[in-house]
Computed example of a mutant assay.
Amino acid sequence: MKDRSLSTLITGGTRGIGAAVARRLAADGRSLVLGYLSDESSAVATRDEVRALGVSCEIVQADITTDRGIADLFEAAGPITGVVNNAGATYRYAPLAETPADEIRKTYAVNLVGPTLVARAAVSALAEGGVIVNISSGAATLGSPGEYVHYAAAKAGIDALTKGLGLEVAGQGIRVVAVAPGLTETDMHANTGDPGRITRMAPQIPLGRASSPDEVAEAVAWLMSDKAGYVTATTLRVTGGR
């Protein structure tokens, strides 16, 4: 029988930061359910990698911008005490006035509306207590002018969600926290048409480099652990000082 005390759902859990979080939580002995949107080969590879660490892992194809997708995730997960609200996306780097309106709507759906609905479902799923870790972004406080102001605004909404919901459900034994990564070595930059962005942006970071997904995953693992038992309704920045 699955150990409910160590069972976690990760949305967008099969690539980039999500996959790093999956590996890190698996090292803590957590059984996992990993949501993904469309990249089945990466999902299968991450599932197999996690299973090789000796824990149970299932993958679920689901779109968090739909009610059905969110229901499928939580039905597959069953009894849990942890949710990592990680799924999100960016589509291009451009000034706001040059960004198509439909793309702005899609960005909010994926990065704010969907995660808010996941958090809503998580409160019911964590009826006996647990932890919700939202993945925000350092962009939430920097604004990201000339790149993706709308994405930064959506992530600022995640910070507000974390604060408000954390206060709302503290009495239910549920902690709600967020991690805000800064410049991170993932394929997001290439996928949005700027593969050289890390090299170009790294000198602007006080620590002089981008983070690895594993460094972000360490912050998530700590926040989910009992060592962070007095931490809620707050966002931890993992931004290299920026």
Rank of each mutant, 00 (worst) to 15 (best):
M1G: 12
D3T: 09
L6R: 14
I10S: 03
G18Y: 08
A22K: 07
D28L: 10
G29C: 06
R30D: 12
S31R: 11
S31N: 10
L32P: 03
L32K: 05
L32N: 05
L32W: 04
L34Q: 08
G35Y: 01
L37M: 12
V44S: 12
R47E: 15
R47I: 03
D48M: 07
R51C: 12
S56P: 12
C57P: 05
T66I: 11
A71Y: 02
E75A: 15
A89W: 07
P100N: 05
E103K: 10
E103Y: 03
Y108I: 11
A109Y: 06
L112C: 01
L117Y: 12
V118Q: 00
A122R: 07
S124E: 12
L126W: 01
G129S: 04
V133K: 00
I135Q: 00
S136H: 01
A139I: 00
T141S: 14
A154Y: 09
A154S: 15
A156S: 14
A156H: 11
A160L: 15
G164I: 08
G164W: 10
Q172E: 15
G173R: 10
G173K: 10
E185I: 08
T186C: 03
A190D: 11
T192M: 13
T192Y: 03
G193T: 06
P195T: 06
I198A: 08
R200V: 09
A202Y: 03
P203C: 01
R209Q: 13
V220K: 02
L223P: 01
M224K: 02
A228R: 04
T232A: 05
A233C: 02
L236M: 07
G240S: 03
G241A: 07
